[in-house]
Design a protein around this nucleic acid. Structure first.
Lengths: 149, 149
DNA sequence: GGTGAAAGTGCCACCAC
DNA sequence: GTGGTGGCACTTTCACC
């Protein structure tokens, strides 16, 4: 793990605001030349601080407007990597976390419709290591921010 | 609201995989020339299907590795926009949703440490419209995917 | 970390369908 | 309305200082 200084943070902020901005533009903001910015970005990508660049889409307009959070309770003792391997092939799984408290994991599902969500939940519950699930359907997205600097 | 055809979807997929790929590269994948791709991307941005381009960072390595999901229960009847206005100024709020079930909202918090998370939770509970909260601390991130095509 | 030059890209006007 | 072409400015990317 390496040191990420103030200039790196400002470069990351620029790229989070607009991942397609040019190295020259970023350089004007942070006070560096374009090649210097590129060298820092390449290093941040190499070390994994920056994982990549992606487009932010409106799931609603693409027809993936139905979301739910699912508490997953497993039978017996299950390792996090077990759960991870089971969830990875499911396209509807946006994110998953092991958590404190009664549940073993929280799974963030996104689907095209309530019906699609239902089938995804059925497939989730069919996983043998999963004992039971408690799902909470999202009614509206109040806030959705990209990660902070 | 406009029509988003198959080619648009494939362009969006390319940009989600790498928001910094060139229009020519995308064109090679979807079978269009670079200017044709740019025109479609510009239109998708105009209409809001594409909201922008952002860098994907590893929160762990940036020192924002502590996460929690918080069920928020409000007193009386509170409108979603009320909750939204209260949460918007909090930097630790990554996302928030109104949900079905007993809770009024689910708030996704991200903080630099357990102590930072604690102070964020205190500020959340200090909001007068909020009656009580039930928080679930994330132990590990099993999966974290950018939105699907 | 900056500079300069070569290769690649973005972006626009214009044309064809 | 769609998509393709050509040309010029800008960007990326390298070696070198």
């Amino acid at each position: 793990m390496l040191r990420v200084d103030t200039i790196d943070h400002r470069i990351i902020s620029c790229l989070m605001a607009n991942a397609r901005s040019s190295y020259a533009d970023i350089g004007n903001v942070v006070g560096l030349s374009a090649p210097a910015v590129k060298r820092r970005v390449d290093k941040l990508l190499d070390t994994g601080v920056l994982r990549g660049f992606t487009a932010v889409v409106d799931p609603e307009q693409l027809g993936w407007g139905t979301e739910a959070f699912v508490e997953v309770h497993c039978r017996g003792n299950v390792s996090p990597s077990d759960i991870q391997n089971r969830l990875e092939p499911m396209a509807e799984v946006m994110a998953a976390y092991t958590v404190s408290g009664a549940a073993d994991a929280i799974v963030h599902l996104r689907a095209a419709s309530i019906h699609h969500l239902e089938t995804a939940l059925e497939r989730l519950r069919a996983v043998e290591i999963i004992d039971r699930t408690v799902s909470t359907v999202v009614l509206s997205r109040l806030l959705d921010r990209p990660p902070a600097p």
